[in-house]
């Protein structure tokens, strides 16, 4: 209701109120607030990052999801930590996907390769997660990273072919096949 209306304004002025909603233990409202923050995009980032330390666990998890959806590369370290160590698998999953969709293209040329490598190395590690859906998120993320960071296609192909052999969850195996198809040279 009210949160949805606030989110619909897509105004940076709504950011403080939307982030406050993340503190309440109300999943329905938090989903609407996260959607709103993602719509606002980069303009919401500074506020989210500045307040992250003050959040309780629940709010931090929602804020991480918002950062994962926004794609601003300032969230790199935050998403790396969340993808590898968060207690909730839904947060690890969203963070893994978010890493693969970070817009490193907006960074100065000389920083891009460092960020690409950080994303690649982290997501390769996330592919060892015990939860299938987190591995799924990491594979989708890796695939997206290499749509533009094309020099990662060859190492990713080798990595995914090996991963396919030991992947116990059939749907994740299917996602690996799709990724291999999508990253193979025309």
């Amino acid at each position: 209701g009210a949160v949805r209306a606030l989110a619909a304004t897509r105004s940076p002025l709504a950011v403080p109120q939307l982030t406050t909603v993340l503190r309440y233990n109300n999943p329905g409202a938090a989903v609407a607030a996260v959607d709103g923050l993602i719509q606002i995009g980069d303009a919401a980032m500074a506020h989210l990052m500045a307040n992250m330390d003050g959040y309780n666990y629940g709010a931090r998890a929602w804020a991480t999801r918002a950062c994962a959806g926004i794609g601003d590369p300032r969230a790199l370290a935050l998403l790396q930590e969340a993808a590898l160590t968060d207690f909730a698998l839904s947060v690890r999953r969203a963070a893994a996907k978010g890493l693969g969709f970070l817009r490193w293209q907006s960074l100065p040329q000389e920083e891009q390769e460092t960020v690409q490598k950080a994303i690649y190395d982290t997501l390769v590690q996330v592919c060892e997660d015990p939860e299938w859906v987190v591995r799924y998120g990491a594979i989708a993320g890796l695939e997206n990273l290499t749509t533009q960071a094309v020099h990662y296609r060859q190492p990713l192909t080798t990595f995914l072919q090996a991963l396919l052999k030991k992947e116990p969850e059939a749907i994740v195996g299917e996602r690996i096949l799709l990724a291999l198809e999508n990253i193979s040279p025309m």
């Binding site: 999943p27 698998l89 839904s90 999953r93 299938w132 859906v133 799924y136 969850e169 749907i171």
Partner: peptide, 11 residues
């Protein structure tokens, strides 16, 4: 419904 559950149902 929550995405976590939708993903399991789709799998």
């Amino acid at each position: 419904a929550e995405n976590s559950l939708k993903l399991i149902a789709l799998r």
